[in-house]
Design a protein around this nucleic acid. Structure first.
Lengths: 203, 203
DNA sequence: CCAGATGTGTCAGTGACTGACAGAAGAGGC
DNA sequence: GCCTCTTCTGTCAGTCACTGACACATCTGG
């Protein structure tokens, strides 16, 4: 190993997830300080004590450090939605599902008061990151739309389901952005509720 | 000029917009045939009779060939929305505004039956293009949200306006995707109407 | 016919990524 | 403790998108 400026246990001893978390941590500081586009992968890698090549073995793209893996959270929302009673109004099911994500991850990374807000601010301040984030939403949408489709009655269920899911994702996104942008202690859960209250699917 | 495989008038004689249109035309064929990621900028440039450097003087990014400039259409929607009576329900104002875009561009590029569908299919089949397209939507949202905000009553107007605008954009997007994906002759206008009918803002 | 503005090609360079290869370090069997 | 197999890592070379600098060509107005 030619460069290990950061101390700490060797990368081998900790798991793959821990390495990813470590990269995320040092990268986030660099992004917040200099801006996402002004930091090179080589610099992140050096700060994390590894080569640029190794960085890309943990994150296929630089954006993924901030945006995170789409699949796990998407599956969580999908499972939460599946667990909801089928006679419940879909919009309420969606709202509760997204609220449960926020609730069960409140001690976790992306809604933790300090790092979470920082990460979200970095995300919102860079075009390529916003784009990648919306791509993640598209994957979630493809997981949720079938569930919503079969919970709708009447005509055009597929089309309407897509609209409803996209709108729910918009609520989630706006709630997080608003939360990160505010200096007060407004909860994500509260913003999420207020966002969902702005719309109602047509029956 | 070292390579001019394509015939036609010299690039100088036609305007800047015409050069862009020409690049778009040859690029679209290549994308449809081989896939966006499998075509290099050099190849597009060669097919259009120019160097790669010149290509980037017309399109800062490869994606822009398919996605197009965000500003003009955004301004069109904004102006259309501004022209609507302020006592009209916002959701209807938004629907009519987007329908007017589609109507006034029906003879134009992106909703013309042949090339438009092709372009949209290419867009929907590539992740980086979808992302760039959603980025364009974000710009539109920032232009529309203030207008919607001042047309809302009650509390939380800013937050609710963001949700409503994002949802309208989702309707627009889903309508276009559905239109391009179908083999029948369903109109964009009709799909747009059905999409908007799926939701209603809470009063 | 002659400037000056504009468009273009070439070249060099940065930065994100990828495949191939070789060497180092841990895990398990003996 | 030692050997082997697997896993992780760095180095290297290469592709591709994109950018700045420079020089040359062309078009335009006087």
């Amino acid at each position: 190993m030619s460069s290990t400026p950061s101390s700490g246990p060797s990368l081998r001893e900790i798991g793959r997830d821990a390495v990813r978390a470590r990269i995320t941590e040092v990268a986030l500081d660099l992004f917040a300080e200099r801006g996402f586009d002004e930091v090179t992968v080589e610099q992140i890698a050096a700060a994390a004590g590894m080569s640029g090549r190794t960085f890309h073995r943990y994150f296929p793209a630089k954006e993924d450090v901030v945006v995170g893996e789409p699949a796990p959270l998407g599956e969580f929302v999908r499972d939460a939605l599946t667990a909801r009673p089928r006679d419940e109004p879909v919009w309420e099911s969606l709202r509760i599902s997204f609220e449960s994500v926020v609730a069960s991850h409140s001690a976790h990374s992306f809604v933790a008061d300090d790092r979470g807000k920082l990460a979200r601010r970095v995300l919102d301040s860079t075009a390529s990151l916003r784009a990648r984030n919306l791509e993640k939403h598209m994957l979630w949408a493809s997981m949720l739309t079938p569930l919503v489709t079969e919970r709708l009655d009447g005509e055009d269920t597929a089309l309407r389901a897509e609209i409803i899911v996209q709108s729910a994702l918009a609520c989630f996104d706006v709630a997080l952005t608003t939360w990160a942008d505010a200096d007060d202690d407004t909860t994500v859960a509260e913003l999420l509720e207020r966002s969902f209250a702005a719309l109602r699917p047509e029956v």
